[in-house]
Design a protein around this nucleic acid. Structure first.
Lengths: 231, 231
DNA sequence: CCTTTCAGTGAACAGTCGTGCACAGAGTAG
DNA sequence: CTACTCTGTGCACGACTGTTCACTGAAAGG
């Protein structure tokens, strides 16, 4: 008696459309459950139930839960990349860079709260395969930022390694900020404002260290004098 | 036929001693399982089995898994506090502060790998109660650091808020570093050295921004000129 | 010494889990 | 129109889960 209206109840659809629809229903169901639980504790049956689908239907889309998890990571980072494209597209007011970047981050975190929460949560916890995949993506993101940074004053003659150091520091700060925004009680705008305000200050502090960087490297006493280039 | 040698097989012990021993066996078992899995996906039976104890014995020590988790947090932060005490006890070579702090961090992460892994993993993921508890502890740690920082040059006349900004930035960097060290493949010392080296550079960069801080605050154009005090 | 306490046992419960299998029935191709 | 494809269904299975209960036997207390 298999009735097809478990996910859809609209006009007749092509087969591929209907299948994609169920797939998305499964992904969304998982994402929804992940608001309160961790991925590792999620069950195949649980997700199927939440999606309004029988457990065995799950296998038509994913061979295992881990596979669904990787699909979720794909989707999540797709939205994150969109955010970065947005950031690059903006005029970039030069000394408003920090404020603008923070604003973009906040906007996207709100627009794709579930995706960001998923990434933030599974970044350090749970299933090794997912953790690995997320770390790789973030690392890739950092090195993209590093090449972007190389076009700023003072930074144009930095070592690749030093640019990486700076980029990672900035990314880490952004990630921490995103995590705090996600966990902030919604409907308490002043708390979120404080978080954003602090993030901006942190980024500003980091940027302030940039002009002084080289001299400090030269001051480094007992360290092996390897990678510092001559002025 | 309840035999008592499931955990112990030594000389006769007092009742309290034996009970404490089993309690520790349960905590250690959980900690060991948490190397590969997340706390949320951990089962009472699983932990009891790993501890070499029958499931029902679990209830003699913890009413629920969440209670065991909170006990784990207690223990983990106890070792973390010991680390901080060590850090304060050292001579603090003044401009070797960064190198020394990093060294202490590395040493303790290795000595208490399981505790640090647990904290790192459950900090952002899984069971709300645990996440909450961990965040509170870290926040407390940050504000302690803030008051310590106030005794350094340049920092002695900073706002409380700005000190918090700086402290949080430093703590975040430390936490990220600890997470990376934990996940670094053991037996590859060069990878870990690279991580530590980057962490030191990041901290140095942050510190370099400190002397320039006030002026930048004054430069802040369209922002509301609230919390900056006159020089 | 005898009695009490209580950490750990073992069997049993209702429920959930992942997975295999046969089958329905709507979309698709000839 | 017919035959085929394939997504979703329904049922069954064994394994595992959290929790209950009455129990045992050694340490603790008088």
């Amino acid at each position: 008696m298999g009735h097809t209206d478990s996910v859809n109840s609209e006009t007749p659809l092509t087969r591929a459309e209907q299948k994609e629809r169920t797939r998305i229903a499964l992904l969304d169901a998982a994402l929804r459950l992940l608001e309160r639980r961790s991925f590792g504790s999620l069950g195949l049956r649980e997700v199927a139930r939440e999606a309004g689908v029988v457990p065995t239907a799950f296998y038509r889309h994913f061979a295992t839960m881990e596979e669904l998890g990787l699909a979720l990571i794909d989707d999540s980072f797709r939205t994150l990349r969109r955010m970065i494209r947005d950031a690059r597209a903006e005029p970039l007011g030069y000394d408003h860079v920090i404020r603008q970047s923070a604003e973009i981050l906040v906007r996207h975190v709100h627009a794709h709260r579930l995706h960001f929460r998923f990434i933030a949560r599974e970044r350090s916890s749970g299933v090794p395969a997912l953790r690995q995949a997320i770390r790789t993506e973030i690392r890739l993101f950092s090195s993209e930022l590093a090449t972007d940074l190389a076009r700023f004053p003072f930074l144009d003659r930095w070592t690749t390694e030093d640019l990486g150091v700076l980029a990672t520091l900035i990314v880490n700060t952004m990630v921490s900020t995103a995590e705090e925004i996600i966990d902030a009680p919604s409907g308490r705008p002043e708390i979120e404002q404080a978080i954003v305000r602090r993030a901006e200050k942190q980024l500003r502090l980091i940027v302030l260290g940039v002009p002084a960087w080289r001299s400090a490297e030269a001051r480094s006493d007992t360290a092996e004098p390897s990678e510092n280039q001559p002025a």
